[in-house]
C-alpha cells in the first residue's frame, strides 16, 4: 500500500490526481433515513443484479421444466392423451405450477448462503426495516418466476400449445402463478433460516416437493389412481392450483376453483411471515 494519509481534501472529495486516502472519508453523517419501501427496493435491485452477474442460475431454473415438457409431451403424451398435442394442452399449465413451486427452493438456498457468508449480520447491524431483505428476496423470486414461466410458455407455444382464453387468460394465469410462488416462497425462507447449508435446503426442498408435485393432477388425470391416493391428490394444494391455472388459461375457471387454489398461498403467508420475522429476530 502506498501512503494514503497525506492527500488534500476538499468538501469530502479528493482533488483529482491525488489519492484521497482514508482522510477523505472522515465524518460522513448519515443522510435522512430512508423508508421501508426504499430499503426493500434496494434489495430488489440486488436480486436483479444477481441475474446479471450469475445468469447461469436461469439455466438451473428452466432446464428441468423444459426436459419435463419435452419428455412428457413426446414420450408419454400419445399414450396418455391420444396425441402429443392433446397432452401438451393438458400438461402445460401444470408444468408452469411445478416450475414456480420448484423455483421457490432457490430463494431458500440463497438465504442460507447469505447467512453462511455472514452477509445478514451486516444487514442486521444497519438501521433498516428488518423485513426489507426478505421483501428483496421476494422481488427476486417473482422475477425468477416470471422469466422461467415465460420461457416455458414460449416453448409450449412453439410446440403447439394454444391457451383458449387468449392473452387475458394468460395474464390472469401468470398473476395466479406469482401468487402461488409468493406463498410457497415463505416455506423455503423458513427452511433457509433454520438450515445451515444451502445444499441441505435444496435436498429437503426437493424431498418435500417431489411427492407433492407428482401426487397431483399435473401429469395425469387422477381418475385412474387407487382411491386412497386419489383422495390425497384431490385435496393436494398443488392439484387445486393446477386446476385453477388450467381453468384460467382455457377460460373455464370458476370462482370456486380460484378460491381453492388461493387457500394455500394465503394460509402459508399468514402463518409463515410472522414466523420468519420471529426466527430472524431470534437468530
Amino acid at each position: 500500500m502506498t501512503d494514503i494519509t497525506a492527500a488534500p481534501v476538499r468538501n469530502g472529495r479528493a482533488d483529482t490526481g491525488n489519492v484521497p486516502g482514508i482522510g477523505a472519508l472522515h465524518h460522513v453523517a448519515p443522510p435522512a433515513p430512508p423508508g421501508p419501501m426504499s430499503n426493500a427496493l434496494v434489495f430488489g435491485w440486488r436480486a436483479i443484479l444477481k441475474f446479471r452477474h450469475v445468469p447461469e442460475q436461469l439455466f438451473d431454473l428452466v432446464m428441468m421444466p423444459i426436459m419435463f415438457t419435452l419428455l412428457f409431451t413426446f414420450v408419454f403424451g400419445g399414450a396418455l392423451a391420444g396425441s402429443p398435442g392433446g397432452y401438451l394442452q393438458f400438461f402445460l399449465p401444470g408444468i408452469l405450477v411445478q416450475t414456480v413451486v420448484f423455483n421457490s427452493v432457490y430463494s431458500g438456498m440463497g438465504l442460507s448462503t447469505d447467512f453462511q457468508k455472514g452477509l445478514f449480520d451486516r444487514f442486521r447491524t444497519l438501521p433498516i426495516w428488518s423485513l426489507a431483505p426478505f421483501a428483496g428476496l421476494m422481488v427476486g423470486d417473482l422475477l425468477r418466476h416470471l422469466i422461467a414461466g415465460g420461457i416455458i410458455l414460449g416453448i409450449g407455444l412453439i410446440l403447439g400449445y394454444r391457451p383458449e382464453a387468449g392473452l387475458t387468460g394468460t395474464v390472469a394465469a401468470f398473476a395466479m402463478l406469482l401468487t402461488i410462488g409468493f406463498g410457497m416462497g415463505w416455506v423455503f425462507i423458513v427452511l433457509g433460516l433454520l438450515v445451515r447449508t444451502p445444499m441441505t435446503v435444496m435436498t429437503l426442498g426437493f424431498t418435500i416437493l417431489f411427492p407433492v408435485t407428482f401426487a397431483s393432477n399435473i401429469m395425469v388425470d387422477p381418475a385412474t389412481m387407487p382411491d386412497w391416493l386419489r383422495s390425497f391428490v384431490e385435496v393436494n394444494p398443488v392439484s387445486l392450483m393446477t386446476t385453477a391455472l388450467r381453468g384460467l388459461m382455457s377460460g373455464t375457471a370458476t370462482p370456486m376453483q380460484i378460491g381453492l387454489a388461493l387457500i394455500a398461498p394465503v394460509v402459508l403467508t399468514l402463518i409463515l411471515a410472522p414466523l420468519v420475522l420471529w426466527l430472524y429476530r431470534r437468530r
Binding site: 434496494v42 435491485w45 443484479l49 457468508k117 452477509l119 426489507a132
Partner: peptide, 23 residues
C-alpha cells in the same frame, strides 16, 4: 469474522447497495 459481502456482486455494487440502504 467472515467477509460479510455479496460474493456474486462486484465490489462497487456491494458498496453502492450499502450506501443506498443508508439513504
Amino acid at each position: 469474522q467472515f467477509a460479510s459481502l455479496d460474493e456474486d456482486l462486484t465490489g462497487r455494487d456491494n458498496l453502492v447497495m450499502l450506501a443506498r440502504l443508508w439513504g
